[in-house]
């Protein structure tokens, strides 16, 4: 296996583990932890797709500009993932704030205690 395949496999495995944890846990905090693991996996998959074997980081301090297109990896997925990580923290903070509000309302973090939206 090459580095790209290893990273892709790790990313997919992290997505599985995260989603399985989010579906099977009853504790809201544990679900949020699982979501952060899944989002790390998605980021890993995206960066691995942009990686071209044997190439260097897209920073032109030692690479001459003329040969940049032959020597650097794809910068676009990296920019997207940078954005995704920052937004991921915002989403996590929002989920945690709502989890705290739910705990204040019901005194419990178990998802099966919240039945208002069930039908």
């Amino acid at each position: 296996m090459t580095l790209v395949q290893i990273s892709l496999a790790t990313g997919f495995a992290l997505i599985f583990l995260g989603l399985y944890g989010a579906l099977s846990n009853r504790n809201i905090l544990r679900m949020i932890v699982s979501f952060t693991i899944a989002s790390t996996g998605v980021n890993l998959v995206l960066v691995a797709v942009g990686y071209l074997p044997g190439r260097e980081a897209p920073i032109l301090d030692t690479i001459p500009v003329a040969s940049a297109a032959e020597r650097i990896t794809d910068p676009v997925p990296q920019a997207l993932v940078l954005t995704a990580i920052v937004i991921g923290l915002g989403v996590t903070a929002l989920m945690l704030a709502y989890a705290y509000r739910l705990f204040r309302a019901r005194g419990s973090l178990d998802i099966s205690d919240f039945t208002e939206l069930k039908w």
């Binding site: 990273s7 960066v47 691995a48 990686y51 920073i59 990896t73 990296q78 993932v81 940078l82 990580i85």
Partner: peptide
């Protein structure tokens, strides 16, 4: 390792 130092710092 995947040549993404910017992303590595952020993560």
């Amino acid at each position: 390792l995947l040549a993404a130092p910017d992303v590595a710092m952020t993560e």
